[in-house]
């Protein structure tokens, strides 16, 4: 995207009014999903659909948008609370289910964009195959490669085509020896949110 003078000539209230018309799906509410959802909420996205079946654990606080007093809560509930602490007027629809090929189209029905925010690569593959196969008109933003620290210059964005975008370094796999840490996870989550805005700002 090339910034022209025109693209800057929009007041924040106009941007928020525009973004308020749209619905964005977040598949997973871990490091990517929680941080991405909060960035989208702050930007004024009208409706967020959040799907996650996990509970907040102490180890999640290293990088996920939760607080100590939320340990033990369902992440979907905790994230909805946190979003409503920022913007009470936002619509947050939560689905406390394990996403699979059968339920993805109904959970994210009506979403203008979907953010892939899973931890495991086999789940990422399943979501990409399902959304691209069953909902090919909905842009999907994938996060791949964000473990470790440093290497800012490797964090990359790829516009595969009009329905598929990838954020991350595409090489650093999370493991016990290369854990995901808050800065790089947060950067990629915010790159995904930034991509959502870029797509939606072009929508009428």
């Amino acid at each position: 995207m090339i910034f022209t003078l025109d693209s800057y000539q929009m007041k924040l209230s106009e941007i928020e009014n525009h973004l308020g018309k749209f619905k964005v799906g977040i598949a997973g509410a871990g490091g990517l999903g929680s941080n991405c959802a909060v960035a989208l909420a702050r930007s004024g996205i009208g409706t967020l659909v959040i799907a996650d079946f996990d509970k907040v654990e102490p180890a999640n606080l290293t990088r996920q948008y939760y607080f100590r007093n939320q340990i033990g809560m369902m992440k979907a509930d905790a994230l909805r609370d946190n979003i409503h602490s920022i913007r009470p007027e936002l619509n947050v629809l939560i689905h406390k289910v394990r996403l699979d090929r059968a339920n993805i189209p109904s959970v994210f029905a009506g979403c203008n964009v979907i953010v892939e925010a899973f931890d495991r690569s086999d789940m990422k593959e399943m979501l990409i195959e399902t959304v691209q196969g069953r909902m090919p008109q909905v842009p999907l933003i994938v996060g791949s490669g964000m473990a470790g620290w440093g290497n800012n210059e490797l964090l990359n964005f790829r516009h595969i085509d009009e329905s598929l975008y990838v954020c991350g370094d595409e090489v650093s796999e999370a493991s016990d020896e290369l854990p995901p840490l808050a800065p790089r996870v947060g950067i990629v989550a915010n790159m995904q949110a930034n991509t959502v805005l870029e797509i939606l700002m072009k929508f009428q």
């Binding site: 871990g30 593959e125 473990a147």
Partner: peptide
């Protein structure tokens, strides 16, 4: 052909 790798982590 477009190809990209999927890394665990997120």
């Amino acid at each position: 052909i477009q190809m990209f790798y999927l890394m665990s982590g997120g």
